[in-house]
Design a protein around this nucleic acid. Sequence first.
DNA 1: TCCGGGTATATTGTATACAATGTGCAATAT
DNA 2: ATATTGCACATTGTATACAATATACCCGGA
Lengths: 232, 232
Amino acid sequence: MDNNFNINEDAFLPLRDVVFKTLRQSILTGELKPGERLMEIHLADKLGVSRTPIREAIRQLELEGLVVMLPRRGAQVAHITEKSMSDVLEVRLALDELSVKLACERITDEEIERLREACLDFEKAVDSADIRNITSADVAFHDIIFAASRNMRLIQMMNNLAEQMYRYRFEYIKDDSGWQSLITEHRMITDAIAMRDPELSARAIHVHIKNQENSIIRTIRREEKSRKKDKE
Amino acid sequence: MDNNFNINEDAFLPLRDVVFKTLRQSILTGELKPGERLMEIHLADKLGVSRTPIREAIRQLELEGLVVMLPRRGAQVAHITEKSMSDVLEVRLALDELSVKLACERITDEEIERLREACLDFEKAVDSADIRNITSADVAFHDIIFAASRNMRLIQMMNNLAEQMYRYRFEYIKDDSGWQSLITEHRMITDAIAMRDPELSARAIHVHIKNQENSIIRTIRREEKSRKKDKE
DNA sequence: TCCGGGTATATTGTATACAATGTGCAATAT
DNA sequence: ATATTGCACATTGTATACAATATACCCGGA
């Protein structure tokens, strides 16, 4: 599908997009911590570019909700709260349900086949017990469903929301109690879509997201508790 | 509530935000037409600022989907197609249903009262037959529901989607065939929320959005037809 | 006449210079 | 000793200069 000129494809992107991707990755992985200030000169020096692309990248991060702007104080990494996360998940749930319903109507047989493969890949990834594998297999699985919705706007919004979730995912996925159930859930989703049953699919994805939500909330609460203990 | 220093409050906003608002307004009202190129020097001269704030504003418009970037060709106003509109409406429908469901759980009695008033205001606006009145009354009505969802992320996304709809609203609302039914629909939504019945509310808003969708699609098709005739 | 190459020009991409403003520290007065 | 004022510095906001590149037009040759 791809030709072989994607080596260092970033070299052909505008610097602002390279910077944007770099900063976003740093925030999502926690390298840049919530509340940390993004100072332009500092970042410019560090990345070896001028302030202009840095500023334009920050504008985009602002719209994505990953940073907040304070007038005359610049940008700082947005804080994560349980409320903000459950807000995101509430929306995600609704849009995920929409995705699978639309996918049921519009998915091709060939895509159903790819979905089954992605489902199996995910099982293998869980066997490998490598977090990066598991995460990317999970993303691949859901991406197929999004694409099958044939709704560009929806795909764009879901990518955005999914990105937000990575900030938590890197935490909650360590909580391995639910990996086996994730496999079961993915299978149910796949089967429901293959049967092109919108309501069944919606219920399956509902369970899936709710379980993740509970898992993440448990993690956050645990961390908050331990933070409080540290203070004492 | 407000003090009296909000005279020309834009004067205290960064130029990029002023430019952003200006350009967005121009696009939504159709002053800047789909496909039109946004050339930085030209806009800078016209608005009396340098290219820097223009560029930063364009970055934001890009994220909102109002302009598309072409590499090395800059920005141009995003085209409106029936597909892009139905994409937006598909998402809107899902999020509107979520809004009313959440509102049913979280709305206060005082807000229900305000909702009823907004409902009556809308009826008065329809009587006045002034499009601007009708539009703003409609927005006010829906804003109360959004706010009652208590989900900041959802509110932000709905505002965004609603803005996109203005590009069409200025057209479709001329189609007055549905104003009376809009009143009925608003009443049904209000009653359902007042009863705090999520499913009934969802069905009511579903009908509401679908009717608007049909109305807009009729308008678009009619315009496309007349455009084709012009060409002949 | 039509096609192709090359150059001029317009436009975006990037860097840097300059202006405005907020923050922190220190000096001074109470 | 503490509070307040003013100044220096750090940082963002804005403008402009410079570089890279795409587009359009012109000219020459087939």
